[in-house]
């Protein structure tokens, strides 16, 4: 039922808001709501079928909600015009550095763990030979 799904999602946001206000958390209430809904799903209080329809719909058309805020850039045209170079250079470079850091870290650790596993398997085989 769509209403029930909407209620559960709204409830997660409600609890997230309450928690971030009560504990003065510097994280947005909707991120707190995300963490709460995710935790509730992992524990099993909320099942995937309880929220899937409304979530899928919102996620599919997520970008619509951000059209008006994106249009809001018109308010900063003057500011950006002067700062264009100072925005685009750190933006692009930091994305490239981030891609490298995320990709290389993941790849290196996977390789090291695979090698260790391979070594362990070889040792295991060696042990069998002695027996």
């Amino acid at each position: 039922m769509v209403i029930k799904q909407f209620f559960i999602i709204l409830a997660a946001l409600f609890i997230g808001y309450s928690i971030s206000v009560v504990f003065h958390l510097p994280i947005p209430s909707n991120v707190a709501g995300l963490i709460i809904l995710f935790t509730a799903m992992c524990i099993g209080i909320v099942k995937e079928k309880h929220v899937d329809k409304v979530s899928d719909f919102i996620i599919k058309y997520l970008a619509i909600f951000f059209v008006a805020p994106t249009v809001g850039i018109v308010q900063y045209f003057n500011l950006i015009g002067n700062q264009f170079f100072y925005i685009i250079v750190p933006l692009i470079l930091s994305i490239i550095i981030g891609l490298f850091a995320a990709g290389m870290t993941t790849q290196l650790i996977i390789r090291i763990m695979d090698k260790k596993q391979l070594l362990a398997e070889k040792k295991g085989l060696g042990g069998n030979d002695i027996k």
């Binding site: 979530s55 996620i59 909600f65």
Partner: peptide, 26 residues
């Protein structure tokens, strides 16, 4: 003026982060 007339969308906006829990769970 344009933004005020989009308030309905802006009110639902906070919900859009909460539902990201579902693809994360999947």
């Amino acid at each position: 003026v344009y933004n005020d007339q989009n308030m309905v969308l802006n009110y639902i906006l906070p919900l859009t982060a909460v539902v990201l829990a579902v693809p994360l769970y999947r």
